[in-house]
């Protein structure tokens, strides 16, 4: 499939603890991942979040790493976005190099050897027949 002038949208329900991956949006220029984050009782005033600049996507459809191009609503390390309470929530998006247009499984990799606090989410299935088309 050629993505010229087309944008694919997947609704997904993948999460790692209190980080939720909600949507994947793909066009010929970029892959956008929309996330939601809910603070918990674990940290005082909800703690903080950021994203490492080396964050990338890996896909079953290619050996190439899809590097992060940009981010919206979140800062890159070493900066930090501090929450104010244990009930705060946050929506943010990460942009990566465009994925191949085919059925695949992708993984978000913030760290190769992650600890529980890193934003690594594995095995997100993206099937072409499950995608919506964005109306441009």
């Amino acid at each position: 499939m050629n993505l010229e002038d087309k944008t694919l949208v997947w609704h997904v329900d993948a999460h790692r603890f209190n980080l939720q991956l909600l949507r994947v949006i793909l066009n010929e220029r970029t892959t956008r991942l929309d996330f939601g984050y809910q603070t918990t009782d674990y940290y005082i005033r909800g703690g903080w979040i950021n994203i490492y600049p080396e964050t990338h996507l890996v896909t079953s459809a290619s050996t190439r790493k899809m590097h992060m191009q940009d981010q919206l609503g979140i800062v890159t390390a070493p900066d930090k976005f501090y929450f104010k309470s244990r009930a705060d929530w946050h929506f943010f998006s990460l942009f990566f190099a465009p994925l191949p247009v085919q059925d695949q499984t992708i993984s978000l990799v913030e760290f190769e050897n992650p600890d529980p606090t890193n934003f690594n989410i594995k095995d997100i299935e993206l099937r072409l027949d499950a995608a919506f088309f964005q109306r441009l």
Binding site: V9, H11, Q20, L22, D34, G36, Q38, A87, W89, F91
Partner: peptide, 20 residues
């Protein structure tokens, strides 16, 4: 008459959901 996709946050349940 155009369907939309958005992300919804529930204040009560404190979870996000993608919605069509």
């Amino acid at each position: 008459g155009i369907p939309i996709s958005f992300v919804h946050y529930s204040y009560k349940n404190e979870v996000f959901k993608p919605v069509v």
